[in-house]
Design a protein around this nucleic acid. Sequence first.
DNA 1: CGCTTTATTGAACAGTGGTCAATAAATATA
DNA 2: TATATTTATTGACCACTGTTCAATAAAGCG
Lengths: 205, 205
Amino acid sequence: MYYLIDQCSINEVKPLSPRKSAQDELTKATIIDVARELFVTSGYPSFSMRKLATKLGCSHGAIYYHFKNKAELFYEIVTQDFLTLDQVLEDVLSTPTNSNEEKLYSILFEYIRFGLTHQPQYEVMFLIKDDEIKGYLLEAPNKSYLHFANAVAHLATKPLSPKDIWSLFIGIHGFVTHYCRTETTFEDVKILAQSHVEFLLKALK
Amino acid sequence: MYYLIDQCSINEVKPLSPRKSAQDELTKATIIDVARELFVTSGYPSFSMRKLATKLGCSHGAIYYHFKNKAELFYEIVTQDFLTLDQVLEDVLSTPTNSNEEKLYSILFEYIRFGLTHQPQYEVMFLIKDDEIKGYLLEAPNKSYLHFANAVAHLATKPLSPKDIWSLFIGIHGFVTHYCRTETTFEDVKILAQSHVEFLLKALK
DNA sequence: CGCTTTATTGAACAGTGGTCAATAAATATA
DNA sequence: TATATTTATTGACCACTGTTCAATAAAGCG
């Protein structure tokens, strides 16, 4: 059976085409790009492999040729976001005009900005409980934290204990987490973010 | 068609019984109890209405006679936990031997204890993004926070701004959130919880 | 007893992630 | 160029999920 015959209309023929012509072939990169867009605009819960396939113009099975499963696909998406977050911290550190105290403030503030301007990603990076995804992320969240901790340790006016740095992070993380859940924009809590960062920094003095 | 005839064996007859005898009838209370147990022992992601039905010894359809949907069932489960959390705070406040400073410490510490000894519940109460569940919870999380905020305001040695109380809460919430994701027991981070609370309290001075 | 209300069943529906035999385009080989 | 092999795609299928609902029988009532 090589053809699916549309039995309603007359003689319309639809060839089975188990492979697309070269110019239409899927690539990992395009799948990731389209997946990210779908995921970022409509959120993780509404995302599905079938919706992604529709948006890609392919069958859902095709995606599984390029990615072992949904978790691997999401891993590859947020891998880029871990790099972005690293870069955010790097950018703060390499701003020459600011004092270390200002940089410390900025590290915390910009972390919040990243979290709230990348809510779906932050969720997958640091909040999701899905074992399959955690199995792919492995030490990525921890590595990201170490980067943060290093930056903070470097900038503090007096030596900080690992516990203090951890509490600082947890305090910032709590802020992002809460406003992720309520789907509040960064702009809407910018002022609150400032006072929260100031609050946490008071604990260091 | 009144009977399902087992066509393999000879003449075995299985009556349809669209209502159980009185002693076996479901009640909201028993559904909630069994659901809570299933939910608390195996977590929210593994929970399903069909597994619950199996554990109850009924069909999954029956549950929908007593609860509009899964979200309503979970709402009724965690409603009890919101009361428990209120009680935790109340118990701290009504401990006569402690100073206000000690009570403030205990409020924060006991909040963490509650969160980490009720992880699946805490998740549904404060972390879940499911719109259906949030639609049932409505102001419950906020009401719970106000209870917390009141207690803190009452105990502080100097007047605190609403922002400071909020930052305190967010700091505690972040701690619980993180160790919920990593499924760490309270006992395993008890010492860390102490130092985190002390860190946050330093910000008040 | 008969009528109504109530509680239960399980088939059915639309959705999910994931697998895989069948297949044809692309590529390598003779 | 012809043939064989590799590669990428399809869609039926599986086992799940939450939810709905007609059919049904037990319980309660007049």
